[in-house]
């Protein structure tokens, strides 16, 4: 070792010819391309993505897809069995079940997306502050979260929805508030794990102010976990919306929602089972799609995972 000297400098790669000229730095296909490759490599994730995209398109273009007005009644189609005219059959007042399923996707997906968006937009900042600031701020936020977590998700949603009054918007708010505590907890735990990493200390050592460390260095590293949790929570929120609507606390008649359709259909299970089968199947498919997508995202978003 004592013979080691400046000759080792010869091992340095030769400086490129760019010398004093301005050098352009091309952006290489970075994380996004690799992420997409890994997601595609997982069949279940692709199936989940296809289901989700299909349902979203169905909800967006409901007016073109649905064969009838979802609230128009037809006395000739009351509890009618599936036929060419009404492929999914008719409901108790003769509305087309297919049209109601297609329009009901708006309520279900809307409730899932809006409520989770609300939960993330409340939970993420709170969790970030709690995890990074620590001290009494952390204590206050976490005790509040613990109190909310002590109440089962659906019970809390029902209580909040009942308090706010029955409407789809209030149901979304109730579900969103009930799901918030999950995101606070998850964000806080992730922030604490990332904040202990050496690159955060390196960020401090170069002079980053605390807000910049939290937003530029910690946040991008916890987004994958939040995204996965959000996808899985959308599935739970869809079920919650169906449950609230089933209880009459969500979508109000005559507007369609899968949960509300099930609520009515339970009275006619022996005479018109199609009234229950289609909304039930739709809920199942939507929840399955978001769960598969969430699992696929979890695997694909790990930067250390190889394809």
């Amino acid at each position: 070792m004592s013979g080691m000297d400046r000759d080792a400098a010869a091992l340095l790669p030769p400086p490129s010819v760019a010398g004093g000229r301005a050098v352009t730095l091309p952006r290489e296909p970075g994380m996004l391309g690799a992420f997409w490759r890994r997601l595609r490599a997982r069949r279940s994730a692709v199936v989940g993505l296809a289901i989700v995209v299909g349902l979203v398109l169905m909800a967006a273009f409901a007016g073109w897809i649905a064969p009838y007005d979802p609230t128009a009644t037809d006395w000739g189609a009351v509890r009618a069995a599936p036929s060419l005219a009404h492929p999914f059959g008719g409901d108790e007042v003769g509305r087309d079940v297919l049209a109601r399923i297609v329009y009901g996707a708006r309520a279900s997906l809307g409730a899932g997306l809006v409520s989770v968006a609300l939960a993330v937009s409340l939970g993420l900042p709170l969790g970030l502050v709690a995890g990074y600031a620590g001290g009494w701020v952390d204590g206050a936020i976490m005790r509040l979260t613990d109190a909310l977590l002590a109440i089962p998700f659906l019970i809390l949603a029902i209580a909040l929805a009942a308090f706010l009054g029955p409407s789809l918007t209030n149901a979304m708010v109730a579900i969103g508030l009930s799901a918030t505590s999950t995101f606070v907890r998850l964000t806080r735990a992730q922030v604490q794990a990332v904040a202990a990493e050496e690159f955060v200390e390196a960020a401090r050592s170069v002079g980053n102010p605390p807000w910049r460390i939290a937003l530029v260095h910690i946040l991008p590293n916890i987004v994958p976990a939040i995204l996965v949790q959000a996808t899985l929570t959308i599935a739970a929120a869809i079920i919650a919306e169906a449950s609230l609507s089933f209880l009459g606390l969500g979508q109000q008649p005559p507007e369609p929602s899968w949960g509300a359709m099930l609520n009515v259909a339970k009275n006619f299970l022996d005479q018109a089972p199609w009234m229950a089968i289609w909304p039930g199947l739709s809920i199942f498919l939507a929840v399955l799609g978001f769960n598969l997508l969430g699992d696929g995202l979890r695997d694909a978003l790990d930067p250390r995972a190889r394809t």
């Binding site: 994380m31 690159f199 050592s205 002079g207 260095h217």
Partner: peptide, 26 residues
């Protein structure tokens, strides 16, 4: 705040170059 400004003059090179780089920053 003054210390953050001072950090332009004082730097650190860390032990583990695998941990000292932000994995999601180019």
């Amino acid at each position: 705040r003054a210390m953050r400004g001072m950090r332009a003059r004082i730097q650190t090179v860390f032990q583990d170059p695998y941990a000292a780089l932000n994995p999601r920053m180019s």
